[in-house]
Write a protein that binds this DNA or RNA. Sequence first.
DNA 1: CCAAAAACATACTAATTGGTATGTTTTATG
DNA 2: CATAAAACATACCAATTAGTATGTTTTTGG
Lengths: 210, 210
Amino acid sequence: MFLVYLCGMQQNLKSELTKQVIIDEAFRLFHENGFKTTSIDKIMLATKLTKGAFYHHYKSKKELGLEVIGSKLQNRVCQAMIEPLGAPGDVFHILENTFLNRIKTFSLYDKEHGCPMNNFINEIGDFEIVYQAALKNIIEAWKLALIKLIERGKKEGVIQNNVSSNAVAVYLISAFEGIRGIRKLYDNDLILDEYILGLAFYLKQLKTVK
Amino acid sequence: MFLVYLCGMQQNLKSELTKQVIIDEAFRLFHENGFKTTSIDKIMLATKLTKGAFYHHYKSKKELGLEVIGSKLQNRVCQAMIEPLGAPGDVFHILENTFLNRIKTFSLYDKEHGCPMNNFINEIGDFEIVYQAALKNIIEAWKLALIKLIERGKKEGVIQNNVSSNAVAVYLISAFEGIRGIRKLYDNDLILDEYILGLAFYLKQLKTVK
DNA sequence: CCAAAAACATACTAATTGGTATGTTTTATG
DNA sequence: CATAAAACATACCAATTAGTATGTTTTTGG
């Protein structure tokens, strides 16, 4: 298994590197201009490679789209929104950090172009079933991690027991994705501040009364 | 002013009727397949008219897009989401009816293709400033009507005073738009049920404790 | 060093795009 | 009824699209 790669290593690495460059530029252009309206030509112009190189590594735009969603996008969401939920520590601190504090630290680029996943969902969530499934995977993973955290909060007695963990998870995710779309329309952060205030109130209500 | 139209009435009416047909078909196709990927040809094929007719009434696709957003879309949102907020009656009944009960009555078509406004926002909210402004108009009108209702709730003593009306309005809208995107990924209403449960809990927390 | 395969480039295709130029038909008005 | 204008149709344009066919260059393994 290891020896097999000893000789073909250089070529194999080159191939993987090229694919990564294509994925990175594709993701960036999808994020900035949308999936459907970003052509293979534009992507390959950005990579400084040619169409021939693209169709050597991918059989279609659909295959690329699925890989961008299934690896690049999924990794980003995992790293930023899912993994932090599994960390030890105060449940409310974790919730505040991922859903509230983090949104303040977004770059102007991210505020202007919105959430890549939300963009995908709204543009091609009803386009083809394969994209639908790939995007649903990410949302489901996020939702599950969130439910787990809320359940922990209940067990530790810091979150009210009379509320469905699933419902809270879905409501948190919905509002987060919603505001990231709406923020696009504005040229300042006032709307984000209002969201943050609204979320802070919501989180406070989840706490068990002492 | 009135006499001017007395004679040209038939032609004027025909023009308005044709434009309405174009707007209706355009809105439908934008909703089903997105704005950027819906061509003038496709729209005019649906109207059973031709490209010549289109460019007689509109100078560009952009002009059509702006009219679809500024009239058709705005009217829809006003009718479904804004006007009900101004009606007399119990504040919580109104909130529940517009944000909670109404979502249950959506057709499969509306569930599959999501919220037209949210689709526009996420597809072209960062595309051109004119679209941005047109969409922001609608959101702002919605937000204002919602704030007014919440303020009324506070005055009537049914909504807690220690919560920002702006924050609640933005959080309600965000979650509503967010879930309408996410619902696209699923082939059943379970995720909607969870949203509804989450929202119901949220609304309950807004109530003044008796 | 040499063949074969992988990586990439060049040059195409047919279909679609927004938009225009130039018709023909319908309606309005003196 | 004549003529002008509005409403609509037909035929085009250059640019862009996803994808293919056929190259050339680089890497691999003997």
